[in-house]
């Protein structure tokens, strides 16, 4: 499947679903282009509600739509959506459990790269994970995003889909399954160390796993594409086999994948877990690959963390 990015892929899936379900509408705070929803708008001009640059209004308006039985999807940059409209998501969507879907664009350092800190979003998952009732999906590449968007629309109630900015590489072969709420083993060289990765840094996790393998360390790479609800049993089974783990995510190390895996480890299978991600600091502008390398997400960082976890 030729899908250029997670944004194109997710919107293609939503456009297909919209042909079958006229209650699906997009609510946009000036994010139609960013969400790659221009084709959707051409096909369904009356089903894109453009409110202008007003994320709070977009979220509340979507809540109102949902009370009438519509199925709104709010699209916006991940941080403007989850930070600017944080309270609206929590109080008017999550609390009443309304059927509103949220798509956060340009997630992570990778999503904002040269724009700088204002447009890099590494808090979104942590914010939403702390809200009862919000499901969170973080597909690894375009093809996964296509299926993730379809899976999201099958969920009843609030659900957040984290997408990228077009720089995310395709990492999985055609036909790779996507199962909501389940972790999936990507590669299994052995049980020396578990690497849990989430989102569009999967290529780096794969490279690290392979590098470790070449050095005689045989680990298992697990794609955690649903952050909430967490597949605790699936995670615990891998932890139990490997006995130590590394988490890899383009997010601050607090609040998202790293914490979620640590929670499972504490509860079900105590073991050492090291978190690779943004190390609780603000990065700066830079080209995507250089930026990730400079701020804790280099392949060598994952490799080093794996070696350290095994000690």
């Amino acid at each position: 499947m030729a899908l250029k990015s997670t944004r194109e892929a997710a919107m293609l899936a939503i456009q297909e679903l919209a042909r079958e379900d006229e209650k699906i509408v997009i609510v946009s705070p000036d994010a139609v282009a960013a969400a790659r929803a221009t084709k959707f708008r051409e096909e369904f001009p009356d089903r894109v509600i453009e409110v202008g640059i007003a994320e709070q209004d977009a979220v509340d308006l979507a809540a109102g739509l949902a009370t009438t039985g519509m199925k709104p999807i709010v699209v916006s940059y991940a941080g403007f959506l989850t930070m600017r409209a944080c309270e609206m998501i929590r109080t008017f969507i999550a609390y009443p459990g309304l059927n509103v879907k949220l798509i956060g664009l340009n997630g992570g350092m990778l999503g904002g790269e040269r724009e700088g800190v204002t447009h890099q979003f590494y808090e979104d998952i942590g914010i939403l994970r702390s809200m009862p009732g919000v499901k969170i999906i973080t597909p690894a590449d375009g093809q996964q995003a296509y299926f993730a968007a379809k899976a999201m629309m099958e969920q009843e109630g609030p659900c957040y889909l984290r997408l990228g900015s077009g720089r995310e590489p395709e990492v999985f072969p055609d036909g790779t399954p996507f199962t909501f709420g389940k972790v999936r083993e990507v590669k299994n060289y052995g049980n020396d160390v578990a690497i849990f990765a989430s989102g569009f840094i999967m290529d780096r996790a794969i490279a690290a796993l392979d590098e470790l393998h070449e050095a005689g360390i045989n680990g298992t790479l697990v794609d955690v594409s649903t952050i909430k609800p967490m597949d605790s049993e699936g995670v615990a089974a891998v932890l139990s086999r490997c006995g130590c783990a590394v988490t890899v995510e383009d997010h601050n190390i607090y609040g998202a994948l790293g914490d979620a895996i640590c929670e499972v480890a504490c509860r079900l299978n105590p073991c050492r877990v090291l978190r690779v991600g943004l190390q609780d600091k603000y990065p700066r502008s830079g080209k995507a690959a250089e930026l990730l390398d400079a701020y804790g997400l280099a392949v060598k960082d994952i490799v080093a963390a794996a070696r350290e976890a095994m000690k």
Binding site: K23, V25, D46, R47, I49, Q56, D57, D60, L61, A62, A63, G64, L65, A66, T67, T68, G69, M70, P72, M88, T91, F92
Partner: peptide, 16 residues
């Protein structure tokens, strides 16, 4: 928040 939510309701009803 009431005007934004009310607007969503108004548009949702109108669309249906």
């Amino acid at each position: 928040n009431g005007v934004a939510i009310g607007l969503g309701m108004a548009l949702g009803c109108r669309m249906q």
